[in-house]
Simulated assay, not measured.
Amino acid sequence: MKKLDDIDRRLIALLQDNARLSTVQLAKAVGLSRSAVQERIARLEQSGVIAQYTVRLGSGGDPLRAWLLLRYADGFSCDDVMPQLEALPQVQSCHSVAGETDMLVLVQAETPSMLSDLREAVAGFKGIDDVTTLPVLRTLLER
């Protein structure tokens, strides 16, 4: 695959902000022709850089979001914990990380009480030794 250049990165950022932008709008924003932008987007899709287009919900009810910082119990790993997390619809994303924390889990709940219940459920999973909860106060940038 061809290395990403500045225009590729700008197209990706624009699409992350609004995946419904037309090819003409994208072309104007990056200073290329419509056909050149179409070719670049097709290449980014075919190479797997762009995996999918999705919908990000707006603030119509702003659910409470929080990061759960998980630490595995001795002898357990991501493979042991992931099936339990995947079964929860409130789990938005999971990231395996290095350091004192083993996994970052972004969750969503309607109320603080529901977040507390979710946190307790995750803390009770087999293979989880510790959970730290970091509620999201405000999202400043999300792509």
Rank of each mutant, 00 (worst) to 15 (best):
T23L: 14
G60P: 02
L104T: 08
Q25W: 08
A98Q: 11
I7S: 06
L44G: 03
K2L: 10
E110Y: 00
D102G: 08
Q46V: 03
E120Q: 14
S35C: 06
L64Y: 01
S77K: 11
E142A: 14
L64S: 00
G58N: 01
L88W: 05
P89W: 08
D8Y: 06
T101C: 08
S113P: 04
N18H: 12
D130F: 10
G60H: 01
G48Y: 11
Y53S: 09
L141F: 14
V107S: 03
A123C: 09
V105F: 03
M114Q: 04
L14I: 06
L15M: 15
A42T: 15
V122P: 02
S93R: 07
Q52T: 10
L4D: 07
L68G: 04
V122S: 03
L137V: 13
V37A: 04
S93Y: 00
E142H: 13
T139G: 10
V107G: 01
S47E: 15
M103N: 01
D129V: 01
F76L: 08
V55E: 03
I41L: 15
D80M: 07
A42E: 15
E110P: 04
L85G: 03
A51R: 15
V107F: 02
S33M: 05
V49F: 14
R56V: 11
W67A: 04
G127F: 01
I7W: 00
L115P: 00
E110D: 15
A87Y: 11
V24N: 14
F76I: 05
